[in-house]
């Protein structure tokens, strides 16, 4: 259990932000939470030329890292993988001397087209969202970070505006709780 003010970094990735309804609502909600840094990765590096020094400095200066993105092919948009490859360097993020991220928290906030029922052993996708995020969970653990269960918005194609507003509210509430250090680890 952590306590006191936590510095929350929302890393946002959506390659076609202008087409996204759900992610836009979530991002707007995140921006309302005081003390949360929002960093739009596609906006910063439209050509995938990621500034490693800048990204590492951002990570170092925050306690909670939240990746917010749509669930593409049971994973992240492409730039998140590029970011992992370039930013999480050996000797900094992992390895014998790589301790820069130790003790930080890592979470995903994703939106998925499929309904909650689809992400069950009996459902079409056969795995839960958290199960499908296993490579990222392991990445976080290898870097000495605490993995938090993902915040998932299901059924984005059929979501009403009212439901979306509710989801956005609970997302903001979750970020607030993370900021205030009020969440239990790996609930």
């Amino acid at each position: 259990m952590t306590s006191g003010a936590q510095r929350v970094l929302v890393l946002f990735a959506h390659p076609a932000f202008h087409r996204s309804r759900v992610q836009r609502a979530l991002l707007n909600a995140a921006r309302t939470v005081v003390g949360v840094t929002v960093h739009d990765v596609y906006d910063a590096y439209p050509d995938f030329d990621i500034d490693v020094t800048r990204e590492q400095a951002l990570l170092a200066s925050h306690d909670v890292i939240v990746w917010q993105h749509p669930f593409f092919w049971y994973s992240t948009p492409a730039i998140v993988k590029q970011w992992q490859d370039l930013v999480l360097t050996h000797g900094w993020a992992y390895g014998r001397e790589g301790t820069a991220l130790h003790g930080k928290q890592w979470m995903h906030a994703v939106s998925a087209g499929g309904g909650a029922a689809a992400y069950t052993p009996e459902g079409r996708n056969r795995h839960s969202v958290e199960q499908l995020l296993a490579p990222l969970a392991q990445t976080a653990r290898l870097c000495g970070m605490t993995w938090l269960p993902p915040f998932v918005v299901h059924g984005t194609h059929v979501l009403t505006n009212e439901d979306l507003a509710t989801h956005a509210q609970s997302y903001a509430a979750l970020l607030t709780a993370l900021r205030d250090g009020r969440t239990a680890e790996s609930a």
């Binding site: 490693v52 490859d85 370039l86 360097t89 050996h90 000797g91 390895g95 014998r96």
Partner: peptide, 12 residues
């Protein structure tokens, strides 16, 4: 360009 450079990893 140090990206995808695994020399330190191999050394370790």
């Amino acid at each position: 360009d140090e990206a995808w450079d695994d020399s330190t990893l191999r050394a370790e």
